[in-house]
Design a protein around this nucleic acid. Structure first.
Lengths: 208, 208, 208, 208
DNA sequence: AATGAATGAGTATTCATTCAT
DNA sequence: TATGAATGAATACTCATTCAT
């Protein structure tokens, strides 16, 4: 009797929350955090503004939930490389990050960068830092795994190596943020990663 | 006999402008660019909002002036290493940058990071990118000087090397931004820089 | 059980819109278009400024809606003479216009004059001209009807005659605008109209 | 010693006032009354904003002085027809008014129209009405002169005839204001004036 | 007499949040 | 549960006016 969109009534709470979170991510990707207004989020989610406040206590709450979703995606990306060696996991994860940043939509990378950029103004900086920390710990465990199975030099500080790895990711993000895509396209980060991993494995420098 | 401003009345135009620019930098450091409202800037400068518009045509104009002031500080920092060798200049400039980031207030580093992170969202993308480019070119000329006097390998892409150097600075900045100062304090960037410069000079890796 | 608005809450959208439009007309009558600020309109409508923007996208939008309402009233006035002869319609419409201008509030005449006088200055020039043109065409069709049924000389330019008719209305409006109601009260426009219609019908001048 | 513009110092008070009034007229012609800001007036007059307040107590005062200057120009125009017959004076004055309105700059007509349009918002409406009244009386004396020397029918109400004459001027102004220059260019007001003067002199209608 | 730095009240508009329905 | 009408505080910006120099 009805092909017209069924009214939004009665959706399982968890499904509705997820639907809203996805809308937040889309809006943040497209407009940035400061311009992710509740009006836009409501429109993107296909619900009224009032409904948002049934599932979230505030706009900040919605943004935080989106941040958590991003961490979930990051976790999934990292977990998807399970089975590979530590060095391979570092390489593959970095490559996928670069690819994702360059694709339309940008997967979780685009909203992630927008959160780093736009976080401070809405009191989200701490939440962003916390998410970053969790992601850091996840990569750290891979490095440590590499050290214990002997593929990564054990005389290196694992936290430092992880930090170096993130350094390259962040540099891509910052370049993206400043519109300096020239540096991303030039593949500079590939060279940096290569340099880093050679040092980590004890392989001879590429110039030798 | 007294230099303290008894009342805000009658200040030479240039002094007032400078005072306002300093206020902008303080507000940006503390609240980020998107939350650097004219009300906050006026309060920080100790003048009325109307007065801001006597000296600047718009909020964007104020922010741009602050950006220029930052570039002046960056230039001064780089210029202060004149007379040293290229490698020394890269090393010293990076060290001073780290030190500055750790001091109370953070010198120009804190507002600079905020501009990179929050600028694009408020229509300052071009201005931020331009300033970054000018700073980039300044370091690039040092790298090229090193190549021409033989202290840096000539088979390396000078722009890539400069980008790598900035990568380390940005990583410090991002760490600082997220309150991850642990990584700055640990001196990780020193190690990264060392790795980078070994590669650049053709020196053997430290582990050999 | 009570139709009086106990509180401003929950009014059907269309009713609220109409309420605001009426407030705009009142404010424009009293203060003129340039001084019809959103603050004054909100106060006159008994709603918050924010509410205005729920129903209108901008102040200009509100003013335009008020202009449309005026045209509606003009149309109604003209349409109410349907069934009469062309000459009678010109006479009766003019008389009702004069009467309206003299009543407390001034009906649509007062805001209409303010729009003509003050509209152009606030970017409403086109909207005002368009409304005037629509009103012009409405009277023009009456003149043409008079020409085709033979009650108005066909050797006269219909547009010119219509313009002359409006000229008399505008003169009343300008007099009203400048507080020179003496000239309205004296019925001068009746004499002018008589002169005009004698010329239009080919009747001998009154002095003959 | 100096070809550079001599400083504005020490000008006879009356000359400076006149200089400012001319600036006001220019600014009003170009921008309209609401946009005739003291900043613009000061710039047009080549003096500082503060100086304006040495010679005038307020912006309204400046505008009123400009209004008086316009009345002076109107008086001059009317006086320049002295020696002619009353009918000629009415005809010539109206023609010059039309011509003036169409020329670049617009003489006194442009600012005069702007004052009628923009007056209300700055509490100038009364002053505008007063000026209009003075101009009315001046034309009225010509009509009366015409009646006493027998060139204008004495059975007509002199005030009404004067009002009819102004009706035509106002209609031109209103058309100008609404951008309906088509009606000015078509020479409709010439026809109306002709009709009016035929009635005033007792001449047969043009159609006879 | 002349200046121009400084102000504060006022402008239109946006938006997260509330709450009666 | 879901709505959307209503709000008020905040936003950047304008401008007539004052007053120490």
């Amino acid at each position: 009797m009805s092909t017209k969109p069924i009214r939004n009534r009665r959706l399982p709470a968890e499904a509705r929350r997820a639907q809203i979170v996805q809308a937040v991510l889309r809006v943040v990707s497209e407009h940035g955090v400061p311009s992710a207004t509740v009006a836009r989020i409501a429109a993107a989610a296909g619900v009224s503004e009032g409904t948002l406040y049934v599932y979230f206590s505030s706009r900040e709450d919605m943004l935080r939930a989106a941040l958590d979703a991003i961490f979930g995606d990051i976790s999934d990306l990292i977990d998807s490389t399970e089975g590979l060696s530590a060095i391979e996991r570092l390489t593959v994860t970095a490559r996928r990050h670069s690819e994702l940043a360059k694709t339309e939509g940008g997967g979780f990378v685009t909203p992630w960068v927008e959160f780093i950029a736009g976080g401070p103004q809405v009191g989200l900086r701490e939440a962003v830092a916390e998410t970053q920390n969790k992601a850091f710990e996840k990569m750290l465990s891979i490095v440590k795994q590499g050290q214990s199975d002997g593929t990564i030099r054990t005389d290196l500080d694992a936290r430092r190596l992880t930090w170096q790895w993130y350094t390259i990711m962040w540099a891509e993000n910052v370049s993206y943020l400043m519109g300096l895509s020239e540096y991303i396209d030039a593949g500079h980060s590939g060279y940096s990663l290569d340099l880093l991993l050679r040092d980590a494995t004890g392989a001879p420098p590429s110039g030798a």
